[in-house]
Design a protein around this nucleic acid. Structure first.
Lengths: 195, 195
DNA sequence: TCCAACTTTGAAAGCCATTCTAAAAAGGGA
DNA sequence: TCCCTTTTTAGAATGGCTTTCAAAGTTGGA
């Protein structure tokens, strides 16, 4: 059986996700990926050209998948209050080793240059904010939340606060674990939504 | 003339700051620092042991110095409204290449393990928030700002929003330059302070 | 069946942090 | 001042990892 070019890429990215989970994106060697994908390092390079591009592509994949899971899962939550909690839980890192967030950290430390990738990255954060705004609007409509003057703006600010909380979790600052971050985020969000 | 041990370290860190400004913390080679400090690479390693520790120490130095400049400079600003603007300007990156922020990004991507360093890092962000809170309290006292229920909490949230804005600037997301970040930060802060 | 383009491998090149060796310089105590 | 010990310094050796390369293997179409 033979895999088409895009399939091989996807296969490599899954291997990368696995490998990153085990060794972390900073210590990740091309060989770690190649081993897990069952191919040679040179072969992986043939498909991606640069180690960095593997990381970026992996983040894009991971973020794409999470976005899908997000919309799917949030669709099943009727209560907006609960939906906010669920979104926050999905957005924030599950711990200091959270793959998705460690990838983000890596990308920020060494940002891609090409405009197209940057645009996609911006799109991700925008999508999260819009999703949150949608939930808030629904909650306001149902009289569960206090009206917000600009839901998009509010949502964006909340996502920004969560970004920073995530960063503290990743750093492993004393007392800053996943539960703490969730608590902090919820407090900030509730502050504006509940009187 | 002979430099004492701590002086040599400081000398190296200044060289590092210079070097980082020129090549960026990610591409920074130990040799880049050594050259600029007028010593051999081995010698630099003798003092720091690991390249990573140079980066961490450089961030700590840079952050210490900025904290000093901050308190010095803010003491000269009478109007709290102006002081807030000044603080925001000092906090946020001056551009995508901002040394201090690129160092932060590097540290988050590869966090130090030792508790003492982490505690110092946490201290920095705390100090920023306290400084902002102090200004806000003063402004409230003078009747310039709307009263805030918990100034520390407000300040921390604002700093978090700025962290995330900084990250967008560093990434070089389309439209996210230093001016944009300043504008966004000010809007978020004013939102709660001005009615 | 044969050719041209694409895949795949494993080794070579080159770069860099880190370690090591040995020389040089300081610092004291007699 | 003269040794001896400790610290500092330079520069070369090591080992690991990305990236490049050359050659062998496949595929698909003419």
């Amino acid at each position: 059986m033979k895999l088409e070019r895009p399939d091989v890429r996807a296969h490599v990215l899954r291997a990368a996700l696995l490998a990153i989970d085990e060794v972390g994106p900073d210590r990740l060697r091309v060989r770690d990926i190649a081993e897990r994908a069952g191919m040679s390092s040179g072969h992986v390079m043939y498909y991606f050209g640069k180690r960095d591009r593997i990381l970026v592509s992996t983040l894009l994949l991971s973020e794409d998948e999470l976005a899908e899971r997000r919309t799917a899962e949030l669709a099943t939550v009727a209560d907006p209050r609960e939906a906010v909690g669920r979104l926050v839980e999905m957005y924030l890192p599950a711990g200091a080793g959270d793959v998705r967030w460690r990838l983000w950290a890596q990308i920020v430390a060494r940002p891609p240059q090409d405009e197209e990738t940057l645009a996609r990255i911006a799109g991700f954060t925008g999508a999260w904010a819009r999703e949150l705004a949608r939930i808030v609007v629904r909650g306001v409509g149902e009289g569960l939340f206090r009206p917000v003057d600009d839901p998009e703006d509010h949502a964006m600010r909340m996502c920004r606060i969560m970004d920073s909380l995530a960063s503290d979790v990743l750093l492993g600052l004393p007392g800053c674990d996943a539960g703490w971050a969730h608590e902090q985020a919820m407090r900030a969000i509730r502050r504006e939504l509940l009187p």
